[in-house]
Structures are given as C-alpha cells and as structure tokens.
Write a protein that binds this DNA or RNA. Structure first.
Lengths: 168, 168
DNA sequence: CTCGAAACTCACGGAATCCGAAGTTGGAGG
DNA sequence: CCTCCAACTTCGGATTCCGTGAGTTTCGAG
C-alpha cells in the first residue's frame, strides 16, 4: 500500500487560531465517517481516510479520551416518551455562572448555553408531559436565585436535528 | 442463565397516548446502553438487559431501521472548527412550512423547530466565523419569503449538551 | 379452540473485527 | 550526530458479528 492519501505525521495543525486540542484533517475525516455510522469498522474507516486499521483505532481512542467526540445513540425524544419540550430564555441579575451551573445539574435540561442578546441563557428542557414541564419551569428554574425572568417556547414540531458537524 | 430481568414480551406498551412505534422497556434499556457507548458489543448489552445476543442484534437493527435511534459520533463544534454558533428566533407571516423547509435545507442549520410563544421558529446555526454567520442570517434567512423578523442569540459558552434521553 | 405471526432462545460456524504487542519511521531537540 | 517520542504499520490470537435454522412461548384473529 502506498496511498498517497492524507497522512503525513505532523502536517498542518493549522486550523486557524487553534483551539486547545487541534484536530487535523485526518481526524476530521475519521469523525465524518463515524458521523455517518458510529459502528463503522476501523478497517473500513482506514480505507476511506488512508490509514491502517490500528492507526484509526488509536486515533479514535484518543479522540474519545480527549473528549473531542463521543459515539452515542441519539433518539427522537418523542418516540421514547418525552412529549413536551421547550426552549427557555432566561434573564439573570448578577453572576451568570451559578445559575448556569444549577441548570446544568438538572436532568431535564439537555442543553444549556450562555448567549449574547436579549437572553442571558438559553436552555432546552425535555419533559414527559405538561405537568412535568410546568414544574420544571415554575418550581425549579424561576426560583433559582438570580433569575429575573424567563420566556418559554414550547416545541410544536421538530423539523430537523442533525449531527453533521464537519461533514460539509 | 435465568436473569429475572426486564424481559417479557409485550409488557407495558402503554406509554400514555402512544406515539407511533411504541418503545417498550427493554428497547429503552438497550438504548440506554448505547447512549453510554455506541460501540458496546451486543453480547454485553444482552447481559445487561437480560436478552440474548441475537435478540439484541435484531432489536437494534429494527430501531435503526425504524429511525427511532441512530448511532453517531457527536463532537464539540468548537474543537472541530466552527467558532460561531447562534440561536435564531424567527417570526413568519403566513404559512410556516415553506420557511421551515427552506431552513431545513440549509447545511448551517443544525436544528429547526416550530414553537409556540413569541417566535414561530427557532433555528440553531453553526458557522465557521462571524462573516459566515452574518451571511447566513442576513443574506439567507432574512431574505426568505414570509420571514417578518429575526432575533439572534450568539453563543458565548456552551455549558451542557447531553444525549441521555431515557436515561433517567 | 386452532392457527399464524412475532419475538426470543440456543446453537453453530465462518468471516470480519477488535485489540494488544512489537517493530518501524520521521522529525524535533539536546 | 544521536536520542527520544509520537504516530504508524504489521501481525496473530481472542472476540465479535451475523446469517441461518430449529424449537418455544405469547398473543391475537378467525
């Protein structure tokens, strides 16, 4: 074998300014493969990106260890019994962090992000039913110290949800 | 073996009103296993949920075929080169669907959902840099016919992102 | 009640995959 | 120049995957 392929030891770490653990093109290609099918065999991936099976295995392991990616099953919440979801915009007075931490600790919050704009925080909440949702928003979020106000956007229909980062 | 485990054929389909393909407790347990590790061997899953390797294999295949779940690699967008993300709230006049469809077709839109509340649609946009983000919002979203107004929430810090549905 | 379908178990065997270990290579730094 | 290290390759044995076929149990329809 002598695939002229992508591989070359320390080539082009240069993904711009460089985040912490910079991902090179080969790892990117591996990730793309696994975004198509998380169970794709290492050998097949290796063929696609021009690396040996073992090398792919080592890279994947490292990517997992570093927390750059994870291989998981994702589902449509509706089909697994969570029938109420909402995005909640939150305004906070004072320090954002404690509020963000508290939200992060709540199992119902799938997604917590600090934002610029008319909300300080946005949180995606996944609940079993209306009562559950009401409880989370009114009893657990709005009562957090520092929370000034919230605005809820109940999901009516999820139109798209992908995991194709890098695959463009 | 005779794990008293979860298994029993058609037990409790009753997830309330019942979505289309109702998921029973065993499949739920399988999904949970795969949410922890998308590459876990079928035999190991079987042991955990009280099913044979073959049965797990069949169930997983069906869940994938039915589109109930998918096994994929997920990454932190920041570490793979997408440094600007935003949630965009959109107000539409007239029919929502065409707008939603157009957004769904855009590669930069990772997440599109119809909502109740002061926005009709919420869209998560993933971009490489500010220019890219600006382009998407001003040139591609705001120009869609029917879009009355938009409001953007640029991500400052992603605090939490999980895929643990069913694992509660 | 009887029949049929669906789902599971058990067993098997070959092919494919996984995985640890050992050997190779190229570049950076002393 | 020499050494070290990280990344890669090769290799063989253990494990997993996966189709297949037979037998069992449960449920629902006729």
């Amino acid at each position: 074998m002598h695939s002229e392929a992508v591989a070359s030891r320390s080539t082009e770490p240069r993904t711009g300014t460089g985040s912490s653990p910079t991902i090179d093109a080969v790892s990117l290609a591996i990730i793309e493969q696994l975004q198509e099918d998380g169970r794709r065999p290492y050998a097949a991936i290796g063929k696609a990106v021009g690396l040996s099976e073992a090398a792919v295995r080592q890279r994947v392991q490292k990517l997992l260890d570093q927390g750059v990616m994870q291989i998981v099953a994702v589902t449509d919440p509706l089909t697994v019994g969570f029938r109420r979801q909402a995005m909640v915009g939150i305004n906070v007075e004072g320090d954002l962090d404690p509020v963000a931490e508290a939200l992060t600790a709540m199992a119902e919050c799938e997604y917590v992000v600090m934002t610029a704009g008319s909300f300080d925080l946005m949180v995606e909440v996944v609940c079993e039913d209306d009562d559950h949702l009401l409880d989370v928003i009114n009893k657990r979020i709005r009562t957090l110290p520092g929370v000034r106000s919230t605005e809820s956007f109940v999901y009516l229909k999820l139109k798209k949800q992908t995991y194709m980062w890098g695959t463009r």
